[in-house]
Amino acid sequence: MTGIVKWFNADKGFGFITPDDGSKDVFVHFSAIQNDGYKSLDEGQKVSFTIESGAKGPAAGNVTSL
């Protein structure tokens, strides 16, 4: 699925993605970002991701920028 990064705190390594389908915002951890180098996201960035079952509920996985 796709969405827009609502916010991401690079110091803490997590944030939230707002899915394009209008569903509830999804937690994203830096370890789910699939790019080389520094793993961070920018507010407003368009991303593709999967929904994984995290310890505290749904979380984004396999996050790639579009």
Rank of each mutant, 00 (worst) to 15 (best):
D20H: 07
K56N: 12
V26N: 01
T2E: 06
Q34V: 14
A32I: 04
T18N: 05
W7N: 03
I17R: 00
S53N: 14
V28G: 00
S31N: 08
W7F: 09
S65I: 15
G37K: 09
K6S: 06
S65R: 12
V47H: 01
F8G: 01
H29I: 04
N62L: 08
F8S: 01
T18V: 13
K24S: 13
D21Q: 06
D36L: 11
N9R: 12
F30H: 12
V47G: 00
G22Y: 06
G15I: 02
G37F: 09
F49A: 01
F49N: 00
N62Y: 09
A59N: 10
G22T: 04
K46N: 07
D11W: 13
D11P: 06
G22P: 03
M1S: 08
L66F: 10
S48N: 09
G22S: 06
G15V: 02
D11G: 12
K56I: 11
G57K: 07
D20P: 03
P58R: 11
V28K: 00
L66R: 05
G15C: 01
K46P: 11
E43M: 15
K24A: 13
I51R: 07
I4P: 01
S53P: 15
L41F: 05
D42G: 13
H29Q: 04
F27D: 00
S23C: 07
G44F: 05
G54S: 15
I17P: 00
V5P: 00
G3S: 00
I51T: 06
A32V: 10
S31T: 14
D25Y: 04
S53F: 14
K12D: 04
F14M: 06
T50D: 08
S40H: 11
D25V: 05
K12Y: 10
S65K: 15
I33L: 10
F49M: 04
K24M: 14
G37S: 11
N62C: 11
A10N: 11
I33T: 03
D42M: 14
K12C: 12
A32N: 10
T18P: 00
K12S: 06
Q34H: 10
D36Q: 15
S23I: 06
M1H: 12
E52L: 14
T2C: 08
A59L: 13
F16K: 04
K6I: 05
F49R: 00
V28C: 07
N62P: 03
D42P: 08
D21F: 07
L41D: 01
Q45M: 14
K39N: 07
L41E: 01
D11R: 13
G3Y: 00
Q34N: 14
F8W: 15
A55D: 14
K39C: 08
S40Y: 15
S53C: 14
S48F: 12
K24W: 07
Q34F: 09
W7A: 03
I33E: 02
